[in-house]
C-alpha cells in the first residue's frame, strides 16, 4: 500500500493537524498512535474521506481524496469503527445484504451468498440471523468487520476497533484482523493497544500535538529516537 500525505492542515476552532506530510510505500498495516486529542482520529477521518483538510492533499494508492471524488474514493475502502455501528433493526446478515442488494444493486442471491461467506469466515455462522443486540460485543464487532469487507475493499480503515471490548473479546477480534492481513488486506488504523501495534503493524506513525513526531517501522517503538515517543512509550506501556 502507498500512502502519500502532502502538507495536510486541518482546523476546527483551533488547529488540529499542522502541515503534515508523509510518504510511505510497501507496508500493509500502518498504525497511527498518540495521546488522546493529538489529532490521530482526525487524520484517520481525513484518510477515510469522511472529512476534508483545509489545505494539502491525501493519496492512498492511486486514489485521491477530494469532495468531488468522495464516492469512488470511499468505494475502495472498508470501515470498522470503535462501536460496531450495525443497524439495530436488521440481523447481522441483513446488515450486509442491505448494502449489497439495496445500495450496490446486487441480486438477492448474490448478496446473501456473499454475506454468508463473510460471516462464516468470521465464525458467525450461528449468529447471522440474530440482531446486534442479541450477540456479544465481540461478535457484533466481527460482524461489522464482515460488513466492511462486503464491498471487497483492499484497504480497511479501523478506528479503535477494540476500544469498547473487554480483553477476551479484544483478543477474539484481533485474531480475525490478523487473519485478514494474512489474506492480503491492507490496514490503516488507530488504536491504544500497543501490544497489538507491536504484533500486527509494520509501520507506525506517532502523532503529537498535531504533528508527526516520529514515524518508521514498528521497531521504533522499542527504540524511540525522539523524547516525545520515549515519554509516550513510558506512559502507556502496560507490560
Amino acid at each position: 500500500m502507498k500512502i502519500s500525505i502532502k502538507n495536510v492542515t486541518k482546523y476546527y476552532d483551533k488547529k488540529v493537524l499542522d502541515d503534515i506530510s508523509i510518504d510511505i510505500d510497501g507496508y500493509s498495516a500502518v498504525a497511527i498512535i498518540g495521546l488522546s486529542g493529538c489529532g490521530k482520529s482526525t487524520l484517520l477521518r481525513l484518510i477515510s474521506g469522511i472529512e476534508f483538510p483545509q489545505g494539502g492533499e491525501i493519496h492512498i494508492n492511486d486514489w485521491k481524496s477530494t469532495k468531488e471524488t468522495k464516492r469512488e474514493y470511499q468505494n475502495q475502502l472498508g470501515f470498522v469503527f470503535q462501536k460496531h455501528n450495525l443497524f439495530p433493526h436488521l440481523t447481522l446478515k441483513q446488515n450486509i445484504t442491505v448494502i449489497l442488494e439495496k445500495v450496490k444493486g446486487q441480486s438477492k442471491e448474490e448478496a446473501e451468498a456473499r454475506a454468508e461467506e463473510l460471516l462464516n469466515m468470521l465464525h458467525l455462522h450461528d449468529e447471522m440471523d440474530k440482531k446486534p443486540a442479541k450477540v456479544s460485543g465481540g461478535q457484533a464487532q466481527r460482524a461489522s468487520i464482515a460488513r466492511a469487507l462486503s464491498t471487497k475493499p483492499s484497504l480497511l480503515i479501523m478506528d479503535e476497533p477494540t476500544a469498547s471490548l473487554d480483553p477476551i473479546l479484544t483478543h477474539e477480534v484481533l485474531m480475525e484482523i490478523k487473519h485478514l492481513k494474512s489474506m492480503g488486506k491492507d490496514f490503516i488504523f488507530v488504536t491504544h493497544e500497543l501490544n497489538f501495534v507491536k504484533n500486527f503493524a509494520d509501520y507506525v506513525i506517532f502523532i503529537d500535538e498535531g504533528k508527526i513526531a516520529e514515524h518508521g517501522e514498528t521497531n521504533i517503538l522499542n527504540n524511540p529516537s525522539t523524547d516525545k515517543l520515549k515519554a509516550f512509550m513510558k506512559n502507556v506501556s502496560y507490560d
Binding site: 477515510s48 469522511i50 464516492r71 470511499q74 468505494n75 475502502l77 470501515f79 469503527f81 462501536k83 455501528n85 443497524f87 448494502i99 445500495v103 450496490k104 464491498t151
Partner: peptide, 14 residues
Amino acid sequence: DPQQYIVMDLYGFT
C-alpha cells in the same frame, strides 16, 4: 445514533 448516518454515507446510501 448519528454514527448510523456516517455508515450510510460511507456506503453511498441515497
